[in-house]
């Protein structure tokens, strides 16, 4: 089952601390949405509001068009995969996965059958008689997923579901989560602070900071053309070049750039991904640069660059891995890969 979700001007505070302010978000049925942000940004509060564990001070939550703002968790068409999994330690895996069906009054034989089917779906066939403490972290994660899916929710909420796993396992579980979501078609809302994880699985990334949505869109768009300086920085490594508004566009230490900048801020920050810097000619020429420290990463060389026009500035570039770069490069950039924001006032 699946359903769309609407958050309509949702706001919430914990005492004097404003956790969420005026959140508006539309999630389509069957979409895989990732809420991404640093700890304390409000993403977990938002998930708790979706699950019904926290009732927002203001605003409405609609699932499948129905206003569920005041509906308790037990009667919401949502289920949650908790960060600590919260598997019941005194029950077998079969009883854990069948718990929701038991609460719904499904007879024992039928719910055991359904539980075994769900366990098979997450790759734990024949493990129904085991107990949670006999499992590895990754297996527990799968059981939590199976338990949440067994009641066929319209929306599945995942609270940092891969946070407790080591890096390798996390990467492989990402692919599996995505595959399972495709198979069941349920709307997934997934909270994480790992931007690689977000890019690997999301149909849409929602970047959050200080209780607000900073940016939202498909991973490639949010990565290449972030909507805010915060989103730019959070989505990955970024070169920040100080700039100011000039008569014919933007003045930078590396030369003028003829682009129009909306707004009226005088001091600007120009953002450039490391892989946008190229050796050769391009639409915007940054002049020659000396290569400092250099490291090989398999997919690229990571180079520290010292541009001759602005020797105080340090840039990081990802250069093609096929051969080691020369000691002096000619830097060029496609202006389409640039993002320009008003300078952050600290």
């Amino acid at each position: 089952m699946t359903a769309p979700v609407t958050l309509d001007r949702v706001a919430h505070s914990f005492g004097p601390h404003r956790a969420l302010g005026d959140i508006r978000l539309e999630i389509a049925a069957g979409e895989y949405v990732v809420l991404l942000g640093p700890s304390g940004c409000g993403k977990t509060t938002l998930l708790s509001i979706l699950g019904g564990f926290v009732r927002p001070d203001q605003g409405r939550v609609l699932i499948g068009g129905r206003d569920v703002t005041a509906v308790p968790p037990a009667r919401r068409p949502t289920t949650t995969v908790f960060q600590d999994y919260a598997l019941f330690p005194h029950m077998t895996l079969r009883d854990n996965v069948g718990f929701g069906l038991r609460m719904a009054g499904v007879a024992r034989a039928r719910r055991h059958e359904a539980a075994d089917r769900q366990l098979a779906l997450v790759g734990l066939e024949g493990a129904g008689g085991k107990r949670p403490h006999e499992l590895s972290g990754g297996q527990r994660q799968r059981v939590a997923l199976a338990r949440a899916l067994a009641v066929e929710p319209e929306v599945l909420l995942l609270d940092e579901p891969l946070g407790a796993l080591d890096l390798k396992l996390r990467r492989s579980m990402q692919d599996e989560l995505k595959a399972i979501q495709r198979r069941v078609g349920t709307t997934f809302v997934h909270v994480t602070h790992d931007q690689e994880e977000a890019m690997a699985i999301a149909d849409r990334i929602v970047v959050m900071n200080a209780g607000r949505i900073e940016d939202q869109g498909p991973p490639d768009r949010v990565y290449r053309r972030p909507a805010s300086l915060f989103a730019a920085g959070f989505m990955g490594e970024m070169n920040r070049i100080p700039a100011r508004r000039g008569p014919a566009g933007v003045e930078t230490p590396l030369g003028p750039l003829p682009v129009a900048v909306p707004g009226d801020a005088a001091r600007l920050t120009l953002c450039l991904r490391p892989e946008a810097l190229r050796d050769g000619s391009g639409a915007w020429d940054l002049g020659p640069a000396r290569v400092g420290d250099l490291a090989f990463f398999g997919t690229h060389f990571r180079a520290h660059l010292i541009p001759e026009r602005a020797p105080d500035l340090r840039l990081v570039a990802h250069l093609p891995p096929d051969r080691a770069p020369d000691s002096v490069l000619r830097l060029a950039v496609d202006p389409a890969e640039l993002s320009i924001f008003p300078e952050e006032v600290p």
Binding site: T79, T80, A86, H90, F99, V151
Partner: peptide
């Protein structure tokens, strides 16, 4: 989260107590 998980899966207050909190 144990109690939350039980409620999330449809248990009412008594069921949460009877099946999760009391045994634990």
């Amino acid at each position: 989260n144990y109690a939350r998980a039980a409620q999330d899966l449809g248990a009412n207050g008594w069921q949460t107590f009877r099946h999760v909190i009391l045994p634990l």
